[in-house]
Design a protein around this nucleic acid. Structure first.
Lengths: 200, 200
DNA sequence: TTATAAAAACTGACTGGATAGTTTATATAA
DNA sequence: TTATATAAACTATCCAGTCAGTTTTTATAA
């Protein structure tokens, strides 16, 4: 007759489940995390989970889509507010400072997505689209910067964007495995000086 | 079907099993690979596998140790034969050219090791040691290069080594997910020019 | 206002299938 | 003969997904 909870409350629970999933997947990876683990991190029962998602894989893919959507939206919003390409890049580089645990979880689960993508065309599609979008944004910023005279004319936007992003992801990979927050921040500052020296 | 085989033959079988494991783990990851999968890729039976290894995890960790040992040995051997630090770095950068499938598998399973390391102190230990060793080698080469006057004096060997290695791993991560062999090779050449320009 | 009906949402014990690891019977080189 | 490598069958465990029963909320008739 009438829904017991409102649409917003429902969406909230869905998000809470995705949050619990992020916690699990970022700690133990996709396969090692059981649905019972996710249930333990949420305030719901196992049965309820299946009111919100079709399967464990559905939770995983939904988490990927949610992360992709929100992070791109936030990024675009902020970049639109910055005028200078140089400042945009600086902002982006410093996005990862200060280090926080949530970012670490996001990055950990993101690599989990990548590893899983060889099994799932759906995941692969979302990830390659996201990859190309991000790379496209960096490339455009660099191209703008060249046009505006802020960056060197002989820089290839495509290649520079690829380097920038590889450096970013490599740094994060190392942070997950070896570095602590302080070291990450030092290294990010080093990227800033080096990349900007390379571009300007 | 052949009792009393020599030690060499035994070691050969062990290596063949590690090879089968590399195949599986690089394709599907640790958890998604079953022992039966590994058996299928080897010429042995399941029961036999347990004559060589204690468990699936033991296979995984043995693969990590084997890879670590052989790759570091090979690297050190070659680097010892090169005099100039600049040439050493150039050689290293081009180690990944030409692209080949075996390297891709190695890199894929290496990331699998990294992801697994949060669960296993043993894996973590081997990986951090390996990481520090590799980074130490790069750092030493750069320091030598500075002393020999081949590199700029104001370069910080520690930081430069960190950047170099982050770039390397980031690039490979992207190659696993998005790029093809041709793109990897182009990007590696780009690293060469940029890194060497940064150092000299 | 209140009793009842109906729908939605939740629960957790259970099941079927998968698979890590073990045992056993057989084959064979030494 | 005998030690052991092997294959195949076996066992125990785990876990994704199900479902029958319960609780909560809303609607509405009296």
């Amino acid at each position: 007759m009438a829904p017991r909870i409102s649409e917003e409350a429902k969406e909230e629970k869905r998000l809470a489940l995705l949050d619990a999933a992020l916690e699990c997947f970022s700690q133990k990876g996709y396969y090692a995390s059981s649905v019972d683990d996710i249930v333990r991190y949420s305030n719901l029962s196992k049965g309820s989970v299946y009111n919100y998602f079709d399967s464990k894989e559905d939770i995983f893919i939904s988490l990927l889509q949610h992360q992709t959507k929100t992070s791109l939206e936030r990024l675009n919003k902020v970049l639109r507010e910055i005028e200078s390409p140089l400042e945009k890049l600086k902002y982006w580089i410093n996005l990862d400072i200060p280090f926080n645990l949530h970012k670490k979880k996001m990055m950990r689960v993101h690599i989990e997505f990548w590893m899983y993508s060889s099994d799932s065309p759906d995941v692969k599609k979302v990830l390659t689209d996201r990859f190309d979008t991000v790379l496209g944004i960096v490339k455009d910023i660099i191209a703008e910067g060249i046009e505006a005279g802020e960056f060197k004319k002989d820089v290839d936007p495509e290649k520079a964007a690829g380097m920038f992003w590889a450096l970013h992801d490599g740094l994060w990979l190392h942070t997950l495995v070896r570095f602590d927050e302080k070291q990450l921040e030092e290294r990010i500052k080093e990227i800033e000086t080096t990349m900007l020296a390379y571009l300007t």
